[in-house]
């Protein structure tokens, strides 16, 4: 890499970046108390007005009945009581968890496998990278949701393939048991950006480690388990956490490809929330749902960090190898 490229942090992990920035730049005295605040003012004001205040407000709204047309009316914990009896809420929770559990590992496994395959000096790597990245580039767009709807539709491409292989064609999107699967595939198809992060992580593993292992006569599998996986584990954690956070909020594909159907089999949490807020104008109820989502994502992230103590390996003494 030359000076013209964006510098890659030691490990692509967010927490690593946080730590590095804290150590390197936050030392020393305040050299510009006023100018500092002037420079960060755009973000700080935006944070206070467009994020912090709305978060507090939505917490308040979650205890009210609010339809936008009339002022919010305090109803205590009734929203949460109603949610606890809402079959559609539990359905959306189940669908979202299924989707997260199926799509995130699938996407990461494919990304890791391809990154391992590409992590060698072969020609044409930028060509492969481009092809593989393309779905990530367009995958979140409405256009691809349209494409997916057609491909998995009754007369779609997948059924042509099914007939050709000798499987009975079916309406993949219109069948409750397969509809969610089409969305999982759409997500896994966009593994390119995770793959690029894995590839960057693999490039940072010092080659001396492999050379030393070769001298000791280690098999490729052993090298993978003993060197690659531990050295890559912070990047895996990072991809895992970001993948889970994004998956919990998945909206566009569920909205356009299946619109939550058939029989609510793809009604993801974000879609359920949207329908409550903007479909039936139950803003208080939807705020309660948003807070539940925040808590779920918070718990999932915390669990990931706690579990990471047992499987993520940090170079503590030999920091700074490139």
């Amino acid at each position: 890499m030359n000076a013209q490229t964006v510098q890659t942090p030691d490990k692509a992990g967010l927490y690593k970046g946080m730590e590095a920035v804290a150590n390197k730049t936050f030392k020393g005295r305040w050299n510009a108390p006023l100018a500092g605040y002037l420079f960060i003012a755009p973000w700080l004001l935006g944070f206070l007005i467009l994020q912090l205040w709305p978060i507090i407000q939505s917490f308040y709204l979650s205890f009210t009945e609010y339809s936008l047309l009339e002022p919010a009316r305090w109803i205590g914990i009734k929203n949460f009581q109603d949610i606890a009896h809402d079959r559609l809420f539990f359905n959306s929770l189940k669908v979202t968890f299924l989707y997260v559990i199926a799509s995130v590992p699938l996407k990461l496994l494919v990304a890791l496998a391809i990154a391992l395959l590409l992590n060698r000096n072969i020609r044409g790597i930028s060509f492969y990278r481009t092809i593989i990245y393309l779905p990530s580039l367009i995958g979140g767009s409405l256009a691809v949701a349209v494409l997916w709807r057609n491909i998995f539709g009754l007369n779609g491409f997948i059924n042509q393939l099914a007939i050709w292989v000798g499987i009975a064609p079916k309406n993949w999107i219109g069948t409750p048991s397969t509809a969610l699967g089409t969305l999982v595939l759409l997500t896994a198809w966009q593994f390119g950006s995770s793959m690029i992060i894995f590839l960057a992580g693999l490039k940072q593993i010092p080659s001396e480690l492999y050379e030393a292992a070769s001298v000791d006569g280690a098999s490729p599998l052993r090298k993978f388990i003993r060197i690659t996986l531990p050295m890559l584990s912070p990047v895996i954690l990072f991809n895992l956490i970001m993948g889970i956070i994004n998956a919990f909020q998945m909206f566009t594909s569920a909205f356009v490809v299946t619109n939550g159907g058939p029989v609510n089999s793809t009604e993801m949490f974000a879609l359920f929330l949207y329908n409550k807020a903007f479909g039936s104008l139950q803003m208080g109820y939807a705020s309660a749902l948003a807070w539940i989502l925040l808590v779920i994502i918070g718990i999932a992230t915390a669990l990931n960090f706690i579990a990471s103590k047992y499987w993520v390996f940090y170079e503590t003494e030999t920091e700074g190898r490139k």
């Binding site: 946080m18 807020a277 948003a290 989502l293 925040l294 994502i297």
Partner: peptide, 29 residues
């Protein structure tokens, strides 16, 4: 990145935490 001012570390940590904030929470307000 370049200036030092009071509470900078706190604000920067908050900035990074907002990356994980689901948009749905701020949506309605």
């Amino acid at each position: 990145a370049r200036l030092n001012f009071p509470l900078k570390g706190l604000w920067f940590s908050i900035l990074l935490m907002t990356l994980m904030l689901p948009g749905q929470v701020t949506l309605i307000p």
